[in-house]
Design a protein around this nucleic acid. Structure first.
Length: 293
DNA sequence: TGGCAGGGTCATA
DNA sequence: TATGACCCTGCC
């Protein structure tokens, strides 16, 4: 498939491509030398950049924006009000300011499910590599600006897949989880449309019935694919920040986050996670080259 | 070369 | 409910 290189632009305040694509919610967007981001999502390739308040999407017509990307970028949601509400908590204020350009993407369910199973006890470059290789092996090729990209595999393309078939991905013990969960999905054990109708806690339990999906992975799927903002995905980073800010025990971090931030818990988690991890990265850089600062 | 952490989950007690 | 094992990689 070859994609026409059309473009479309729109105005948005709460929209920072770097924050959106590096805050940890997605794995298939890469920064380009000019500071823009190119990624594969919804079976297409898109380049996103921003100047002032204008967001430029290259590789997308107005019709595609209306039918696909508008929803993907969660553009109907009023982030200004969310940020104002969360900023009332003094301990959240700096994180909200720091990650103010984050938007929670509405990612495809099957891709989000498998991606976050792969993410378990894993590091980000390796997660990205595994997903990239998986797409290369079983996804559809698209050419965009003379470069090859691969869409995340359709469920049917992974029909009959075994952990042995997945071995080249070097996903380790997660390969067995992927095999079982793909089988469950294809059997209809879990159906996206049904999850959409369920209250969050019921959908969470349903997701956790899948192999490789524990509380954290289930919450990521609920937030990043189903748009449920009342979950608080709690990984090691979030546990750390909850301990630092609210003197919260590790085992209570998830419950505490949901209680404190309620209907906006998911986006609060992203602000906290993004600020904490970026600061940690900056500190690492300084430690490696103290003269540079 | 060896130990350890890395966006957890699963099985077991 | 708590603990250890689990695949694999990169870093120190």
């Amino acid at each position: 498939m070859k994609q026409m290189n059309k473009s479309f632009s729109f105005e948005a305040e709460s929209f920072d491509p770097a924050a959106i694509f590096t805050c940890g919610q997605c794995f298939r967007w890469r920064e380009q030398p000019d500071g823009s981001f190119t990624g594969v999502a919804l079976g297409r390739v898109l380049n996103v950049s921003k100047k002032g308040n204008e967001v430029l999407l290259s590789g997308c017509t107005k019709d595609e924006f209306d039918s696909l990307w508008h929803r993907y970028f969660d553009l109907d949601r009023d982030y200004k009000t969310i940020k104002r509400t969360l900023s009332k908590n003094p301990k959240l204020k700096s994180a909200v300011k720091y990650g103010g350009g984050i938007r929670i993407l509405r990612q495809e369910f099957f891709e989000t499910l498998l991606s976050f199973i792969i993410s378990a006890n894993n590091n980000i470059p390796r997660i990205q590599g595994i997903i990239e290789n998986m797409s290369r092996l079983w996804g559809e090729k698209t050419v965009f600006e003379n470069k090859e990209y691969y869409a995340f595999p359709e469920p049917s393309a992974l029909s009959g897949i075994t952990a042995g078939d997945l071995a080249p991905l070097r996903a380790g013990y997660r390969a067995a989880y992927l095999e079982k969960t793909v089988k469950s999905y294809l059997r209809g054990d879990i159906v996206y449309e049904e999850l959409c109708e369920m209250p969050t806690d019921k959908a969470r339990r349903a997701l956790m019935s899948l192999c490789g999906v524990g509380p954290k992975v289930a919450d990521c799927i609920l937030l990043f694919s189903l748009g449920r903002f009342d979950v608080f995905p709690t990984d090691v980073w979030v546990k750390r920040v909850m301990a630092e800010l609210f003197s919260c025990a590790e085992k209570d971090a998830c419950k505490k986050g949901c209680e404190m931030f309620g209907e906006y818990a998911g986006i609060a988690q992203q602000y906290l996670f993004y600020e904490r991890r970026e600061q940690s990265r900056e500190n690492e850089k300084k430690e490696k080259s103290p003269a540079a600062s």
